[in-house]
Simulated assay, not measured.
Amino acid sequence: MPINKKSKIKQERLDATLEKYREALGWLEKKGFNIKNSRLAKYDKSYKKLLDNWGKETFKEIIENKSYSSSVYEVYEVIQIHQRLIEFDNKEVNESIKKLLSGVELYEEDDLKIKPSSARDFSFELYMASYFKRAGYSLSFNTVADFNAYDKKDSFFVECKRPAKEETFGKNIEKALKQSAKRFLSDSKRCQKGIAAIDISHLLNPNHEFQVIESLNETSDYLSVADEIYSPMIKEHFDKYGENCVAVILNWRLPMLHIPNQQLGLYNKVFSVPIFNSNSTSEEAFKRMSQKLTNSVGI
């Protein structure tokens, strides 16, 4: 199916996204990182090619180009990290960013390696940290947890995991919850709780391909996966951690092609599954956190 060559609005949106991505790369370069030899530079070239070829390639050609889908996924993520963590300039954050630059371009190449690169693990950690930062939490990376998000009342220790297979999903959650509860500080006056943040993008889309949809309502199918499959299992098996932990946060991002509107982008969803004990400090902390995260949507 051909793309409408007169679809100027789509070209303008792609161009605006590429400009934001290059601003993010410029931010990294100012920090002293070598972007030119990193995988992030490859996404710049792939996204630019997608923009230049818009209207010249068919949907089939776009869908089959793995460099395109990887670039869409990575470009949006780096933009979000830049926009929300731009003022951070400390050793811990810079170390994570340095690791983010490593690794191979395509996800499928990473999957074929005996020991996959940890670059995308650190990318997810930074992304989740930016999610809490947007909600108004202060962040600390000077902790054995992946990061600590805190305000005047609460201190959440967040452990991030990216399961590669369905059979490791539960193990990743349990490991994250156990780790987070061990990070509490003995002298803290805040309400300290643990959180497991789990990226299920690979489970929903193992080949990291574009998902072609005829209606934007189809994106709700992915939400139902969390509602009907993952959420009940999490509540059933992990509520035993509800005294020290408040929730398992599920995150997924999928490159999307909406054919009728000729719209291309990244579908992103963050979904909190509560595991707190009723009438406990965990329940109170979860409600405060949920309110702040909900209010930050759209910022």
Rank of each mutant, 00 (worst) to 15 (best):
S215C: 13
S231H: 12
R134C: 12
F184R: 10
R162K: 14
L139T: 11
I195A: 01
Y222Q: 14
C191I: 07
I173Q: 08
K175T: 00
F210R: 02
D146R: 01
L204S: 04
K175H: 03
E159S: 03
F147P: 03
V144S: 15
L204D: 03
V212P: 06
Y230Q: 09
R134V: 03
R183T: 08
I198K: 06
N205D: 10
A176H: 08
D146H: 02
R183C: 12
I195E: 04
D199V: 06
Q211L: 14
D227N: 14
K161C: 00
R190F: 00
K182A: 04
I213Y: 11
V225P: 09
E209R: 09
R190E: 06
G194W: 03
V158H: 03
D227H: 11
S215W: 01
E166C: 03
K133Q: 15
F141M: 14
K165Q: 09
V225H: 04
I173Y: 08
L203R: 08
K133C: 06
T168L: 08
S201K: 02
D227A: 06
L139V: 08
I229E: 11
E174F: 04
S140I: 05
F210V: 13
L203N: 00
F184S: 07
G136K: 10
C191F: 05
S188K: 07
S180V: 13
E159T: 05
E228L: 15
R162D: 00
R183E: 15
Y150P: 06
G194F: 12
L204P: 04
K171D: 14
Y222E: 13
E214V: 02
K189F: 02
N217G: 05
V212I: 15
I195P: 07
T168S: 14
P206I: 01
Y230N: 11
C191A: 13
I200K: 10
I200C: 09
K182T: 02
Y230M: 15
Y222N: 12
C191S: 10
K153M: 11
A176T: 07
F169I: 00
N172E: 05
K161N: 04
F184D: 05
I229T: 09
H202R: 11
E218P: 10
E174T: 11
D146V: 06
L223D: 15
N207S: 15
F147H: 09
F156W: 11
I200A: 05
M233L: 14
S180I: 12
K189W: 06
L185H: 08
S186F: 02
N142L: 11
Y222G: 08
A181W: 07
N207V: 01
N217P: 05
D151A: 10
A176G: 11
T219L: 15
S180A: 15
K175G: 12
E218L: 09
K175S: 14
K182H: 05
P163I: 03
G136P: 00
A164S: 02
K171W: 01
A164D: 10
S138G: 00
A176F: 01
K171I: 08
S138Y: 13
S140V: 04
V225D: 03
S215K: 13
A176N: 00
I213N: 06
G170N: 07
F184Q: 12
F210A: 07
L204Y: 03
